[in-house]
Design a protein around this nucleic acid. Structure first.
Ligand SMILES: [Mn+2]
Ligand SMILES: [Mn+2]
Ligand SMILES: [Zn+2]
Ligand SMILES: [Zn+2]
Lengths: 140, 140
DNA sequence: CTACGGATGCAAAAGCTTCTCATTATTATC
DNA sequence: GATAATAATGAGAAGCTTTTGCATCCGTAG
């Protein structure tokens, strides 16, 4: 009874090989932020024959279950990362694609205040800072 | 010599009928935030025969020229709005699609600080707050 | 007014994501 | 452990937004 299968069961999802492999992939990947295509290709390289449609379906189910978070970075396609409970926002390098994370309570607080002032009941937010990372700056 | 044609010339763009009509559309629209499809359909309704490909091309040129800003709200497709010089962020209703705008100097400042702390040279940022707007809340 | 180069429209194609449906695997029950 | 009901999967087709190729058209410098 592995940790992964428990996560799946707790999420109300049947324990299937594709779901296990995708979850393991997300946990073990060097890169925290992966596209569906990334996950698909990595699985192929590991010798796992899992269809791209299944990868998309499973990632969406994981999102609904709260196991992963979906992000819409610039570039159009969705990026997924394991949800470790802690909310955070992202700062991305426009040169190399590097992604760093941060959390700023001052910003979080101001956001809640802004929503309240505008009469909105806040459900979510997304904040992306784009720039040139230290490595790319020194290379230039 | 209308204001619109001057804007185009200043941006280094030839003054063509499609570009004029699209610019007028953006200026006169009730809704500040429009998709390419929105612009295309509105032009059709006004009796202007402008191809969708041209709408996309022109909006991209306007963006490059700094005449419009492109946003990536949830839902995948790009939204455009006339650039009036002032930077602002957005708060959106997940029920009805309403879009409100805000600018918070505290958040702007914190963002610059976060980028600096992470060693990034900031180029841009995008902040979207999602929630339920006053109207939709009272209806529920 | 002419001629050149850029702009346009249409259709085709691209890129990402979802859907359809026949087949297969999982799980509750015996 | 075998069985039946039910859900999940894979392959390809389809959907949507956006881009591109190319023949034709138009704006503008001269
Ligand atoms: Mn992250
Ligand atoms: Mn706006
Ligand atoms: Zn970089
Ligand atoms: Zn609303």
């Amino acid at each position: 009874m592995s940790t992964e299968s428990n996560h799946l069961r707790k999420a109300g999802l049947k324990v299937t090989l594709p779901r296990m492999k995708i979850l393991e992939m997300l946990e073990s990947s060097e890169t925290r932020h992966l596209s569906a295509e990334d996950v698909y290709k990595s699985l192929l390289e590991s010798g796992e024959e899992i269809g791209l449609a299944t990868v998309y379906r499973v990632l969406t189910q994981f999102e609904t279950a709260g196991l992963v978070a979906r992000h819409h970075f610039e570039g159009g396609h969705s990026m997924f990362e394991l949800n470790e409970g802690d909310h955070h926002d992202h700062i991305l390098c426009v040169k190399c694609g590097r992604v760093d994370e941060f959390m700023d309570e001052t910003i979080e607080k101001r956001q809640r205040q802004i929503a309240q002032d505008a009469g909105y009941e806040i459900t979510d937010h997304s904040l992306y800072i784009y720039g040139i990372c230290p490595d790319c700056r020194s290379k230039a």
